[in-house]
Design a protein around this nucleic acid. Structure first.
Lengths: 130, 130
DNA sequence: CCGCATCCTGTAGGATACTG
DNA sequence: CAGTATCCTACAGGATGCGG
């Protein structure tokens, strides 16, 4: 995310003329959008999974994800790094090599991904008819 | 989602030469992308929340969500309807009125939204520094 | 009131080529 | 090997106006 300050809210007035603050809508929408910004997009999950499975080198990750381009991989890895999900380590060997690994913090995503996965599985059944 | 059949996988070979199937990557990525397709996008959550709070009529929903346009609202409501999250009821009054309500099924999203919200809250603290 | 038809823009992501 | 630099396309979403 770029920590958007953009206005995006709804008028939360309940139909029964109860007073209810605008802010509790934000309290749902804003964090959810923050989270979605981090993990949505075409390549975030594939990259996270690839790295979690032990692909550390740039070329290694690139080859393990069909059809990704180096430009996109580069950009996404930077994004994941700024969100502290991926750690980039440069080794001063000849030639210089770089390793990407998941941070321990990345594990906190497990429950989120798990929830999405679980819902996605049952939803596909629901929509396509079981 | 449009139940994409598009190929998007990764080479799941582990670094230790263990045999591991391609398919278990799909088993994570595909459902997660299905779920994300349903709830991501700029307006899905605001609409779901607006409807859940009792805004039933088209104009009512539209007015409750600042800056949304009728075209976008119309399209998003259709999407939510095809995913069985929203029910559209037409009343043969004069003039014809239409009501949108959440389906009971929509409640199954609560755990997903809850997980995203929870993670989003702590992540914002983590990134911006608490 | 409840939308749809047009037209337009901004941005994620793709193709291709090139550097240290 | 580990990326950048350009250029380009596709599609989500916005602006405006009209129709039943």
């Amino acid at each position: 995310m770029q920590m958007k300050t953009e206005e995006l809210t709804i008028n939360c007035g309940k139909p029964y003329a109860e007073e209810s603050s605008h802010t509790d809508c934000h309290k749902v929408i804003m964090p959810v959008r923050d989270a979605l910004d981090v993990i949505s997009g075409k390549w975030k999950l594939p990259i996270i999974i690839a790295v979690s499975r032990g692909h550390k080198r740039f070329r290694d990750i690139e080859r393990s994800i069909p059809k990704i381009t180096s430009k996109v991989l580069s950009k996404e890895l930077k994004d994941l790094e700024t969100h502290k999900l991926v750690k980039r380590t440069v080794y001063d060997s000849q030639p210089v090599s770089v390793e990407y690994t998941l941070t321990p913090y990345a594990a906190t995503l497990d429950s989120v991904i798990g929830a999405l996965q679980k819902w996605g599985i049952q939803h596909r059944k629901k929509i396509l008819g079981k």
